[in-house]
Amino acid sequence: MTTAPDFSHLRLPQRHFHALDLSRLLAAIMVLFWHYQHIFVPPVPYHVNVDRAIQPWYETLGWFYNHGHVAVQYFWAVSGFVFAHVYLADRSAHARFWPARVARLWPLHLLTLAIMALLQGLYFARSGTEFIYHTNDLKHFLLSIPLMQYWGWQENQSFNGPSWSLSTEILAYLVFWMALPALRRAPLAVAFVLGTGLLWIMLAGGPNKDVLSCVGYFFLGSAAYAATLKGWLRPASLLPLGMALVAIAFALKAQYRAGDAATVAGTFAALFLTLAIDLSDAKGRLKFGQKLGDASYGIYLWHIPIQLALVLLIDSTGQSRDIARQPWFLLFYFTLAITAGFISHAKFERPAQRAVFALWGRWKARA
């Protein structure tokens, strides 16, 4: 009789990382700032640069309007950290990995994809062009269903545009799933080599930059978890390391063509500083962060459909889109998107997950 392998040494005693959960909500809100400019884009079949200074409270919130897109890279790094925490020590990980991914991602993705196809059709009928994402053809719709729309054969973002990052992250999941036996033997070495290698190729101008960077960030996030397992990352070291990376990020940003390198430094500065907060929270004061973080996925996928619905309403009533320059409109839009995230998680995502797992259980029973 063979003894099941013991992977308990590959999991930190901390069950949840509440500051990381909370940071996911804040990252989703950063994406809202970045995409707010869409409202001002007129119905034209090409890219338009918006004067971001016209957006509400720009003098105070300009950094978020200009750099909110870097939250996507942070999502990838946090995912790598969390996946290492959840799956490295789970002996049944290979069997339950993909059912869990399907249950978590696809129901809301498919719903918002269908809604965006409908809303884009209404916008096209009214204006003769699409809203922001112009490659809404049958090819990209079919590729979007299995989240394969951004693997290198796309012309551009399509339908519910932010789902492009989910498409690349699916490939990170696949590499993680395949590399799991090796990661269990040498988690830090394997994750660090994969992460730094892929990001180095990306920075050097390698092909399919978005996929390379996604998988790279994901595995460097896993490497951060492995380093924490070894005791190398503790609040006493994370704080100075995080602050040093902040300084490096700003220094790189000041240089020509150093934006991607600055994003790498800034992403892991944020991860390390957030992790320092988590590891210092022995009494669980940030426990509320878990429920707040649950809304991040819904916010991320709902905010563009909500935005397009508002634009359709504004245009149909003959109002000027300059209404979005008013602070109250910004607050209204953010409230709608964040509320949708919480309602979506409680009323749609969780029930859909249970339904998928029930179907999976019945299929396994028959098999």
Score class of each variant (00 low, 15 high):
I248M: 10
S213C: 05
F272T: 12
H69Q: 11
V50W: 10
Q290H: 15
S23F: 05
E349A: 05
D278V: 04
R184L: 03
M116Y: 03
A189I: 07
T339N: 09
L25D: 02
L330Y: 12
F83S: 04
Y225W: 02
A367D: 13
T135H: 10
P43S: 08
L312P: 03
A179E: 04
F272E: 12
A337T: 10
P42V: 01
G298N: 03
S158L: 06
I314V: 14
Q255K: 15
H303A: 08
Q157G: 09
L183C: 05
G206R: 03
L105K: 02
V215T: 04
K291A: 14
F159G: 07
F81Y: 02
R350G: 05
W34S: 13
M243P: 09
T228V: 00
H18W: 13
G318D: 00
I170V: 15
R11P: 12
L273G: 09
V211D: 00
K139A: 15
G80L: 01
H38D: 15
Q37K: 14
D90W: 08
T267N: 00
I304V: 14
W76I: 09
A251G: 15
P56H: 07
A262T: 04
K209R: 13
A189K: 06
G341K: 05
W151D: 00
H303C: 08
F124I: 07
I304K: 09
L330A: 15
V78D: 03
F33R: 00
Q120M: 08
L22G: 15
F40K: 10
H18F: 14
F332H: 09
F348I: 04
A254R: 07
I299M: 10
V31L: 09
P351K: 00
H38F: 15
L180W: 04
G231I: 06
F176M: 06
I132C: 03
V44Y: 08
V86M: 02
F357N: 07
Q353V: 09
Q307H: 11
T263I: 13
P351C: 00
R15C: 08
D210T: 10
M243G: 12
M178K: 14
A172W: 06
L147C: 04
T112R: 07
